[in-house]
Write a protein that binds this DNA or RNA. Structure first.
Length: 909
RNA sequence: GCCGGUGUGGCGAAAUGGCAGACGCACGGGACUUAAAAUCCCGGGACUUUAAAAAGUCGUGUGGGUUCGAGUCCCACCACCGGCACCA
């Protein structure tokens, strides 16, 4: 404390109620057919007890926080921002009569614990458990109403057993394009040429949703592991910012691309912010266009390109292949000067990291291959180049270059003196056609067999695509930026794959899944957590674990951190289930029942997961949905991103800036209720906003005013004296010394008091529905400012006010509620399960209102009128208003606009 | 470069197209106090006129527009934040 007196004894009140809630298990959410104790407040509120079916339970409401990675640094003021918002809503929904599911857990696999293990040899589990204990203490001290009986950690074998189980489902499924969904691999029909077991295996393995690939991957030497595309930002690792290079490696992939269309289309069915949906749309990156095949001059080979502008085919003056394109070797003339150039260029590209490539992106580079292709529309020979501005991984890895109407091709053609030929006329003739990339009208696009001259771009595309299809030269197609998900990591602290490797009769290596009964596959105990000397993942060090008696060898990669977070929201539903990842009836109740929204009703977390976690989780959910393992197509119906909290200097909080605020320090000085209130009072949840400690003092003072409204000052002084002479374990009892304020009486309330109260109920209720926490709090401040002036304070009014306050400042509200109960028997025993108050609109109606009068839109005076005054009365009063008169002199009234109950505007010349 | 978002007092922020700045912080004044802290009450957009009461002018990033009336709607621009970035 900074020497000043406490506003109220939160240091005793808060632990007292946290303990009480804990003992009562007050926030247990009950599953269908789960035993509900008759003495639980939920049973009292809903008149149910014992084992109750889903139909007899109240409607569900699932409010979810993104579970944290329990870092060694502990909680940060950014974490509780979202947690406070969801807790307020959970408490509010509980009061509204919902069966609220509000769980918390730990995304506990992760790099820091492993790096610490590499350095010190301490098992990551030890570090992880200590961090979880600290996070738990911090989160519990904030009084959140989580159902802790559902707590889970992704590192717990009882949990990751099912993560591995879901991986097996992916492994044992394929995406059937005919049914447009994932199915068991057993339904896969083999083509006629799959005659041997080996061929069948190869075909099956090429169709699985989890498959092995040898493609070049993002290798981060510093982290000693590969990374998914999404984890690489500007050629550096998202975690740590280390350089990433391309390296061919054998890796596990998940076929998320099969779901590209569903992931895109179903965004329209969920209630997420536009910006977030847009980020996902951009990431999926759908584009419609066509494949076109170009014959290579003097070869049997064809080059297939993808283009979104088939209408510009007549303007293709050269072609570009990605440097890694497999056709390069085949088409380049042997022993030519060109081949030397190609090899040199390829070597230069390969030695560059992705970072270098992006940094050097300004200047176009490339070399001529010496080969030519034939433009299928007009039979012209065009040179084939290679250049790194064409990406091997997008489309077909080859393009037709139309320099007149593509910015990149234009730059390249300008640099290398390649011809630039106009085929699109911009709508405005003054616009320069060179480098014009928008729609227009086709020109110079005529050949004996086909002409699109004069057609607008849209029509031209349609006509030429139809022609290409008819001639088997091309095909309408859709391309996505989305790539398959690189799913393996060369780490210790992650879920091991339930996969083993064997040799077939010919000595060829193949993989096989373990059976469900082999789960969970536990990671082995290690002395050293580093990768092996020959670059194998750390798991390869455990020889006993690695080699199985039958000669097969375990997979040594582990799953990425995203695996555990892909389905944790489902495990919460049925966290203790040992027979299934989630029980069917339970899943159906929480995800799909009754009047609720499909899926999680509200999911709150940071924007940093906009593409990674949220895309991956949606993908897994859709696979589980196709396999009839869950009952909704989408996991998260409504999603809200909380804004970033900055330091008081307006900068991002960071250790190096020294502007980090530790919630523990704030709690010691102001208490959890004030902390929660401030987090919400700062501004709209979604906004980025700076922390300001004197703002905490402001809401703390408000809670002090609430306290002083209720309690007798003299008795509080006695309490404080007793506190100094009593052992701290008995401090809870001392609270009984504090008496209610003498002005609080069990009497009827005045109309004015009721109006103040009901205005507050209305505002708080509507604001909670709209998640406008800051204005809800200001409404309660308005109530208190008014109530402070009342000579007599009716119990019933104060009681209702406490119900409004309870979601925001639950400890203080409980304590005062308990005190009120002593004088008013109607106050029910449990504030947390009391019914949310309804407001009565008739109480809010004013008999006389003030209406502004303006002249030519400028406010001049205010008139007092009866609420039902007719227009004639309003007009007369407005014209005769004192401050309006001077402005009317010498003017003619042209028009009078009257908006009943709102305003009067007089228009004069 | 492209996409999305945000610009309102000294600060955090409020305002279904209808009295801009609710509520809070900080600040100033008063009451209580020997004094301070705490608390309670009052006042604060800027400018001009006025001894004062009061009145007027201007004011929501900039410039236009729609409207009786614009912080709010439309067009153009500027600044900042977030995302994507050679995606054919």
């Amino acid at each position: 404390m900074s020497g000043s007196r406490r506003q109220y004894p939160f240091h005793i009140i808060e632990p007292k109620w946290q303990q009480t809630w804990d003992q009562q298990q007050a926030f247990r959410a009950f599953n269908p057919n789960e035993e509900i104790p008759a003495n639980h407040p939920f049973a009292g509120r809903h008149k149910v007890s014992g084992k109750v079916s889903a139909a007899q339970l109240p409607p569900k409401f699932y409010i979810l926080d993104m579970f944290p990675y329990p870092s060694g640094a502990g909680l940060h003021v950014g974490h509780p921002e979202g947690y406070t918002a969801t807790d307020i809503l959970a408490r509010y929904r509980r009061a509204c009569g919902f069966n609220v599911l509000h769980p918390m857990g730990w995304d506990s696999f992760g790099l820091p614990a492993e790096q610490y293990a590499v350095k010190t040899g301490q098992h990551p589990r030890v570090t992880t458990e200590a961090n979880i204990a600290n996070f738990t203490r911090q989160i519990k001290s904030l009084g959140f109403s989580y159902d802790w009986s559902r707590e889970l950690a992704t590192t717990d074998p009882d949990y990751f057993k099912w993560t591995q189980w879901i991986f097996l489902k992916l492994y044992n499924s394929w995406f059937n394009p005919e049914t447009n969904k994932a199915e068991s691999i057993d339904t896969l029909k083999f083509p006629a040429d799959c005659t041997t077991e080996e061929k069948k295996r190869g075909y099956r393995d090429s169709k699985r949703l989890a498959y092995v690939s040898e493609a070049p991957v993002n290798w981060c030497p510093e982290l000693g592991t590969v990374l998914a595309n999404e984890e690489v930002i500007d050629g550096r690792s998202e975690v740590g910012g280390f350089p990433v290079i391309r390296k061919p490696m054998r890796q596990w992939m998940l076929r998320i691309t099969a779901y590209a269309e569903k992931l895109l289309a179903d965004l329209d069915t969920i209630d997420w912010s536009d910006s977030l949906k847009e980020m996902q749309r951009n990431w999926i990156g759908k584009s419609e266009g066509a494949f076109v095949d170009f014959q290579v001059e003097g070869h049997s080979e064809k080059i297939r390109v993808f283009t979104t502008r088939p209408d510009t085919l007549f303007g293709a003056t050269y072609m570009v292949l990605a440097p890694e394109h497999p056709l390069v070797e085949l088409i380049a003339p042997d022993n030519s000067i060109e081949w030397a150039n190609i090899e040199q260029y390829r070597a230069a590209i390969a030695s560059k990291s992705d970072l270098d490539r992006t940094e050097l992106a300004k200047e176009k580079t490339g070399v001529f291959t010496g080969a030519y292709a034939i433009n299928p529309v007009n039979g012209e020979n065009i040179p084939i180049w290679i250049a790194d501005y064409v990406l091997a991984s997008y489309g077909t890895g080859a393009i037709m270059a139309v320099p007149a109407h593509d910015t990149r091709d234009f730059e390249f053609a300008t640099k290398f003196n390649l011809p630039i030929f106009q085929v699109v006329q911009p709508p405005d003739p003054r616009t320069d056609w060179q480098g014009y990339t928008d729609d227009g009208t086709s020109v110079n696009s005529t050949a004996p067999e086909i002409s699109i001259n004069g057609l607008p771009t849209f029509e031209a595309k349609k006509k030429i695509t139809a022609w290409l299809e008819a001639k088997s030269l091309g095909k309408k197609t859709i391309n996505y930026k989305l790539r398959d998900w690189l799913f393996s990591r060369q780490r210790y602290w992650g879920e091991p794959f339930p996969i083993i490797w064997k040799n077939d009769a010919a000595g060829k290596l193949y993989h096989e899944a373990l059976t469900e009964s082999a789960l969970p596959v536990l990671p082995p105990t290690l002395e050293d957590y580093k990768p092996t000397a020959d670059g194998q993942p750390p798991l390869a060090r455990a020889k006993d674990w690695l080699n199985l008696p039958d000669g097969s060898v375990r997979e040594t990669n582990t799953m990425p951190q995203w695996a555990g977070s892909c389905w944790y929201y489902l495990r919460y539903l049925d966290a203790k289930n040992t027979d299934a990842f989630v029980g069917k009836e339970v899943e159906n109740y929480w995800m799909k029942s009754g009047g609720g929204k499909p899926g999680v009703d509200l999911y709150v977390g940071g924007t940093e997961h906009a593409v990674l976690h949220l895309l991956y989780a949606r993908f897994w959910h859709k696979v589980l949905f196709d396999l009839n393992l869950v009952s909704t197509a989408e996991p998260f119906f409504k999603l809200v991103n909380q804004g970033l909290i900055l330091g008081s200097d307006g900068q991002k909080m960071s250790k190096s800036r020294g502007n980090v605020v530790n919630p523990d320090d704030v709690l010691v000085e102001y208490g959890a209720d004030a902390f929660r209130l401030y987090e919400m009072f700062m501004g709209p949840l979604q906004d980025t906003k700076p922390w300001n400690t004197s703002g905490v003092a402001g809401v703390y003072k408000f809670l002090g005013r609430v306290w002083r409204l209720f309690v007798d000052e003299q008795s509080e002084v006695e309490f404080e004296q007793a506190e100094t002479t009593t052992e701290s374990p008995r401090h809870g009892e001392l609270l009984n010394l504090i008496k209610l304020h003498a002005a609080i009486k069990d009497v009827a309330s005045t109309p004015a008091q009721l109006k103040t109260l009901h205005a507050c109920i209305k505002k708080v209720t509507e604001d909670l529905d709209g998640m406008r926490f800051n204005t809800a709090i200001s409404a309660m401040m308005v109530f208190i400012n008014d109530a402070m002036t009342w000579e007599t304070k009716p119990v019933s009014v104060l009681k209702t006010f406490l119900q409004l306050l309870a979601p925001f400042a639950p400890h203080l509200a409980e304590e005062l509620w308990a005190k009120l109960s002593a004088v008013n028997s109607q106050t029910s025993a449990s504030l947390q399960y009391s019914a949310w108050p309804m407001f009565d609109p008739t109480l809010l109606v004013e008999s006389e209102i003030e209406i502004p009068v303006s002249l030519n839109g400028k406010m001049r005076d205010v008139i007092k009128v009866s609420v039902d005054a007719d227009n004639a009365t309003l007009e007369a009063l407005a014209k005769s208003a004192e401050k309006v008169q001077p402005f009317l002199e010498g003017k003619t009234i042209k028009k009078i606009i009257i908006v009943p109950k709102k305003m009067v505007n007089i228009v004069v010349t």
